[in-house]
Design a protein around this nucleic acid. Structure first.
Length: 436
RNA sequence: GGUCCCGUCGUCUAACGGUUAGGACACCAGGUUUUCAUCCUAGUAACAGGAGUUCGACUCUCCUCGGGACUGCCA
């Protein structure tokens, strides 16, 4: 009868780690799959790091990945009184007790400890890992209130889950051991505990938890580098789950339909940036033409480049789309169309221009392109093809490309020249010849 | 050290006791192409090891080895 309610409960520290956001993704998908509620709880008890900016960054990150949540955001700091009330109840019931304790860093004070069962077996069925159990004697009592009177994670987390009526807790593998404690807390507070599912960790090539030392580790970094949110989302989903057939690139709709938390993997997954890069290219190629063009124009404008009137943006878009791996590549790839202030690639110059006969070819081509009618890609190609007499256009094409764009590779040469226009084409061929 | 979890190509994974152990990324070879990409075709590459159970084991059991998590007045 009851609706399924899951939550994403990050500590807002300004940056959202990919392992963390994956937990959000899995929670979101599960909620959408079963038609339940996806709640957001901000565990902002670390007053130093939980700034309004950090919370804003968190929201932006969620928005970017289109992880929309239901109901009001729940702020943990606003529930502190409830946490402490619950602790009082536990003490009154004999499930918690005060104790002098010395912390690791040598401070001594009175904390509140939660009393765990001393014998028997603690067990639960994990949604992804299956049956889990531990001897009660292996899980000692633990602190729930600090000597300064502030509630500790365990109690805050459980009380908030009770208050938010969370039915399924899907979180990282590092919380497995806590689950035995949390389950007892729920029961001691007279609440029905939720079902738990623990997601495997994302690790680096060495099998250690993936961190900033291993490369981009925060969602914002992927965004800055020009990854598409859908590509990151899709890739992260594949780390620990698959649709059951051989599809890998899935629409959001398919993901929601097919996802189930019980199909998730148990083993840690190594983060493979190469595959993410491939997937990003795949998403860019699948972007509808018009949308790609819009992004292209936007990126060009953002780079401070001015597009001349009459520039055939459709042609550029068509040519560039299959060659774009990251949105960020765009300005570098087409800067030379819009300004004469661009770099020449040394290697390309050495390989294609600094050769006998190239100067003559460039001057000759400047002349011919100066007269070419009409000045189109098709006409240009036909002209060079004729000159080459079927022996390959390489000796013309390569020097022209480098002379005109400064690069050894790029979009189709003749399309490139058409976009550049007669005037610039001729000028650049001549200029390059002069320099030889 | 203790407790718990895990172990299929380099990586992500498929396999519900019977397959030439499949796919994807990466890599590599070839084709298309003016370059670079895209696209198409082909290839290299894995059941951690050992005992069982079974007619038959990647699939079940046990042991060994290996990896990881936890073992806070952090979350």
């Amino acid at each position: 009868m009851s609706e399924i309610r899951v939550r994403f409960a990050p500590s807002p520290t300004g940056k959202v780690h990919i392992g963390n956001i994956r937990a959000a993704i899995f929670n979101w998908l599960y909620a959408r799959h079963v038609g339940g509620k996806f709640l957001l709880r901000v565990e902002d008890t670390d007053l130093e790091r939980s700034t309004p900016e950090a919370i804003k960054a968190l929201f932006e990150c969620m928005e970017w990945l289109r992880l929309d949540w239901d109901e009001e955001v729940f702020y943990q700091t606003r529930n502190v009184k409830r946490h402490l009330d619950c602790v009082e109840k536990l003490i009154a019931d004999g499930r918690a007790y005060k104790m002098e304790k010395t912390s690791r860093d040598g401070k001594t004070g009175e904390v509140v400890m939660f009393r765990m069962p001393k014998e028997g077996v603690l067990a639960y069925d994990d949604l992804v890992k299956g049956h889990m159990e531990k001897k009660a004697e292996d899980v000692p009592d633990f602190a729930i209130v600090r000597s300064d009177g502030s509630p500790i994670f365990h109690i805050a987390n459980v009380v908030d889950d009770i208050d938010q009526r969370v039915t399924h807790v899907i979180r990282g593998d590092d919380h497995v051991e806590n689950t035995f404690k949390h389950l007892e807390l729920f029961r001691a507070l007279g609440a029905e505990p939720p079902r738990y599912g623990h997601l495997p960790m994302i690790v680096n090539q060495q099998g250690k938890p993936y961190s900033k030392r291993d490369g981009a580790a925060f969602v914002g970094e992927f965004r800055e580098q020009g990854y598409l949110p859908e590509a990151l989302f899709n890739y992260l989903l594949l780390l620990g789950w698959n649709p059951g057939d051989e599809r890998e690139v899935l629409t959001r709709k398919e993901m929601v339909e097919l996802f189930d938390i019980t199909d998730c993997h148990v083993t840690a997954a190594k983060f493979d940036i190469k595959k993410l890069q491939w997937m990003n290219g795949e998403y860019i190629r699948r972007t509808p033409k018009e949308e790609y063009k819009k992004e292209l124009e936007q990126r060009i404008a953002a780079a401070g480049l001015e597009v001349p009137a009459g520039f055939d943006m459709d042609l550029l878009a068509e040519q560039l789309q299959v060659r774009t791996k990251f949105w960020n590549d765009i300005p570098g790839n087409c800067r030379f169309f819009f300004t004469d202030d661009f770099e020449f690639d040394e290697k390309a110059v050495a390989k294609r221009l600094k050769k006998d006969g190239v100067k003559e070819i460039l001057l000759d081509m400047a002349e011919r392109f100066g007269k070419l009618e009409p000045f189109t890609a098709a006409a240009g190609e036909e002209m060079v093809k004729e000159l080459s007499q079927g022996n390959g256009m390489g000796s013309w094409v390569h020097p022209i490309r480098v002379a005109a764009s400064g690069k050894g590779e790029g979009i189709g040469l003749f399309e490139m020249l058409e976009l550049l226009g007669r005037e610039k084409t001729v000028a650049r061929l001549k200029a390059a010849a002069e320099r030889l």
